[in-house]
Design a protein around this nucleic acid. Structure first.
Lengths: 108, 108
DNA sequence: TCTATATTTCCATAAATATGGAAATATAGT
DNA sequence: ACTATATTTCCATATTTATGGAAATATAGA
């Protein structure tokens, strides 16, 4: 992870609509949801949704795959965990002042 | 944690200078560093640094305390962990598709 | 091929954010 | 009070980002 990528990923979720989309996908699991499903769930106009999905994709925080006429978007769990690790990297200079915290990681 | 606060916190670190400042403080530990020390380390002009420190403070990701003429800034580890938890909340709808990942948490 | 539906691109406008010099404000030592 | 140093505020400018309608493009079923 480098700082430019991290800023790009953070920027991509530092916006209300996109954070909602991302969390929805994190919770949806590896299968993901179609663009239409996301737009309907979150009440976001198609062009706006498309813009936000592209931002998230471009940052690498989500994946997309085509299934017939639908495009399914899903969280990129590996990227998410890489970002979290970057934020906490060498916390407290690695001293015992810092203890482990458990969070979520999808099974391969 | 609510979405507005999360977006505010993410926005505050979704910028290269501020992410550098934040990571520096996360690594510095609970004691923190003075504004001058941060500016010198990262080569940021005083007015720009002040603007960024205010952004991080306002978002709640860092604390400040005055020590004589210096102002020491430090990471708010509790806020950071709250944000990470929000991002991964109910990951994969809580199914066994998701396994725990360990990251960093400062001891009280 | 025709039609319906899904999604994206184009575009203009509106709004938010970043930058750093100069001046102002604090704090402490003499 | 005077001086030196630390930090913030003010301000104008430059840059980036968000919005959504209309048109374009893709996909599949009849």
């Amino acid at each position: 992870m480098n700082i430019k990528s991290a800023v790009m990923q953070l920027s991509s979720i530092a916006q209300e609509a996109r954070l909602e989309i991302f969390r929805l996908l994190v919770q949806a699991g590896p299968e993901g949801l179609s663009a239409g499903n996301i737009g309907e769930t979150l009440q976001i106009p198609a062009s706006t949704l498309s813009f936000h999905l592209k931002e998230l994709s471009h940052a690498g925080l989500i994946h997309s795959r085509q299934v017939s006429r639908y495009i399914y978007y899903s969280a990129n769990y590996e990227a998410m965990n890489g970002l979290l690790a970057y934020l906490t990297e060498n916390c407290c200079a690695g001293t015992k002042e810092c203890a482990p915290l458990s969070t979520c990681k999808p099974t391969a």
